[in-house]
Design a protein around this nucleic acid. Structure first.
Lengths: 179, 179
DNA sequence: AATTTAATTGACCACTGGTCAAATAAGGAG
DNA sequence: CTCCTTATTTGACCAGTGGTCAATTAAATT
């Protein structure tokens, strides 16, 4: 027994959520893919929300590692890379981005905000370091919001990042002017 | 009979969607409030989505009329008023805003885009007129996206517009610099 | 071997969106 | 008024959902 671990459940759920979105993934669906009953899932996670919040952690880790990778570069304009990197991440992983930043859910809010805030702080620190600046008054937060606006409204119109790469670059240039 | 009109259904649904959000409103719930069976609703609207899209039209009309009202002013900086007006609308009607701009739904997309696009065009024309400018390359669209970013991320953290009025004004000033 | 603990099952509940044959009401036509 | 057609409305029904829980099974401990 016990080959049904929390980890295995999270991994399976992770793929399903990305493929189908939050609503269309059912606990029974996850259980079926894992070859167990849906009741078993409720032994490991108290409800669908709790399972999803664990999956969310994974998603944010991915975004964090993208930021880290960009910061390891030396030759490029890393501020621009950070801005574009965020947009690219959103548009190339639309379902995932939606789950991370566009899902509304009472109980989820605090959990999501935890990871989301952490990701933002990493983003903010990276921008400061890359741009060798130290703006206050939440200017970087404003930029973050603006990037989110771009992503969220292009999410389902654009096929992927490449499809709006030009517009994204223009937008990023437009935003850079402000700091 | 026939005192159950499309209009009555739309009005009741309109309030319920705002109060509870899309998911938590059920056709049975609407029917109960109207004193009819849920089956009757399916005579007037082919499904929940179709009913909701009619409700959405109402919501966008409200936004449109806010834009119109601002444009009737003469003394104020109407560009700033337009930007702030959009943010205020979003934060003071969070549920409604969510339904208008943050709901993802396959079939809904085209319908929502129709009304949303119309609203944006009105916004764009207003900004051009108020600012006496004619920017190209979708700069106004960029600003619209940026405003949406601000609203969407403050939607459930802020109690209402007043709670973030200062940040909103800073943000708007920040955006104005770009055109 | 006996007992305790960890995990799993599947029947069950109240709910959802949606369908549809049947019942009901309304309006004309003769 | 009757007959027929058309416009509504009902409520049983379906497949599906998230969630609960007593009963069972497997594993570890004594």
């Amino acid at each position: 027994m016990a080959d049904l671990t929390k980890e295995k459940i999270i991994q399976q759920a992770r793929m399903l959520f990305i493929e189908l979105g939050y609503e269309k993934v059912s606990m029974r669906g996850i259980a079926k893919d894992l070859g167990c009953s849906h009741g078993a899932l409720y032994y490991h996670f108290k409800n669908k929300t709790a399972l999803f919040s664990r999956v969310l952690d994974f998603y944010f880790q991915e975004l964090n590692s993208i930021i880290d990778t960009i910061m390891e570069q030396t030759e490029n304009d890393r501020v621009q890379e950070l801005f574009l990197g965020f947009i690219r991440f959103g548009l190339d992983h639309p379902h995932q981005y939606e789950l991370m930043f566009m899902l509304k859910s009472e109980e989820m809010d605090s959990l999501m905000q935890r990871a989301a805030t952490e990701s933002f702080e990493r983003f903010e620190a990276a921008v400061k370091e890359a741009g060798n600046i130290n703006p206050q008054n939440g200017e970087i937060y404003s930029i973050f919001l603006a990037l989110h606006g771009f992503v969220s409204l292009h999410l389902h119109r654009a096929e992927n990042f490449e499809a709006v790469a030009k517009a994204a670059k223009r937008y990023v240039t437009f935003l850079r002017k402000t700091i």
